[in-house]
């Protein structure tokens, strides 16, 4: 009798487990399918743009290009490299602002974070509040524009670098990281006669490499992708255009020709005069290329950075 009971129970258990297992299996299959679909939806547009960028211009207008070009052509890349001076200038300015902007911004943010993370600093809370306020209260687009005009920052390269150098958000992320460094290291160095700046350069900075890398990555991507400042402050100065702003102009010209307004199919006549869809695709790919090339090496940094900044606010 007891044996039978036990058998019954274990049988139930097995049945239960089996049921769970099939349920699990079904869930896993659907979950995997869903995530694969998610990845396809994420990657397809990029691969499609790549295919279009290598396709012959007039042919691409017909549509129906998916993952491979129908009529191979290097023409689009030739055009953006050699025939569009705007893109070349934009590329130069963008590279320059990314390098200069990232380095200055990193230095400025790191130094401020260092000061704010010194526990004995006399004006710690005051200075901290001063910068936190800047995160929420902003003067708005027009007062800033007027100020920059008064300061002669418009129509210049420096408008890309100087005004956005210190970012309160990045400072908070870095400060949180620096607060995690034991005080004893600083105290030991001070006992041996190191001043505050020496501690910053020789002790804090080497320990902060991961967070520096994260912030540098954020700032670099920001500079690489920005176009609005080029449009707002330097739109009459083609020598200070940026890559993304040039891309935006292409976007505009494509919208104008394909008639985004009507959404109707393009007529053959306009198709023959200009077909910047392929040129725009080539420019998009060229702009994405550096980010995608560096992506695998950089990705471990931004995950840590985001978690420090977000969760431990």
């Amino acid at each position: 009798m007891i044996m039978a009971d036990i058998q019954q129970i274990s049988l139930d258990k097995i049945k239960h487990k089996k049921k769970m297992a099939t349920e699990d299996l079904i869930f896993m299959i659907f979950n995997t399918l869903f995530l694969v679909l998610f990845a396809v939806v994420t990657l397809y547009p990029v691969l499609n743009t790549l295919a279009i960028s290598f396709n012959e211009g007039n042919d691409a207008v017909r549509g129906g290009i998916y993952l491979l070009p129908r009529k191979w052509s290097w023409r689009n890349y030739e055009e953006i490299l050699f025939e569009r001076p705007g893109i070349r200038v934009g590329a130069k300015i963008t590279v320059l602002r990314t390098i200069v902007g990232t380095l200055t911004s990193l230095a400025a943010n790191a130094l401020l974070s260092y000061i704010l993370s010194r526990k004995k600093f006399l004006f710690k809370s005051g200075l901290s509040l001063f910068w936190v306020i800047t995160m929420y209260a902003s003067g708005g687009m027009i007062p800033v524009l007027i100020l920059f005009r008064y300061l002669h920052l418009t129509s210049s390269f420096w408008v890309y670098v100087i005004p956005g150098m210190v970012s309160a958000f990045n400072v908070m992320v870095m400060r949180t990281y620096m607060l995690g460094i034991p005080d004893s290291l600083e105290e030991a160095a001070q006992l041996e006669g190191a001043g505050y700046m020496r501690v910053f350069v020789s002790i804090i900075t080497p320990l902060c490499k991961p967070v520096y890398a994260t912030i540098a990555l954020f700032v670099a991507v920001y500079h690489w992708n920005s176009w609005f400042d080029a449009m707002l402050y330097n739109r009459f100065d083609p020598q200070y255009t940026t890559l993304q702003y040039e891309l935006m102009k292409l976007l505009d010209s494509v919208s104008a020709t394909t008639g985004a307004t009507s959404g109707a199919s393009m007529t053959a006549a306009t198709a023959n005069t200009i077909t910047p869809v392929t040129v725009r695709a080539a420019a998009s790919i060229a702009t994405m290329a550096p980010i995608i090339a560096l992506y695998p090496f950089l990705q471990r940094y931004f995950v840590t950075g985001l978690t420090i900044g977000g969760v431990k606010e």
């Binding site: 990845a39 990029v46 499609n48 992708n225 891309l247 976007l251 985004a260």
Partner: peptide, 30 residues
């Protein structure tokens, strides 16, 4: 792999994203 793919678009500018979206939604788009 899925995670790495998933945050790739974050690093693309809105210009590129809008180009992609308008391509996808055009009359011959996907």
């Amino acid at each position: 792999s899925i995670q790495t793919i998933s945050y790739l678009p974050h690093f693309l500018s809105w210009i590129i994203v809008v180009a992609i979206v308008s391509d996808a939604l055009s009359s011959t788009g996907i």
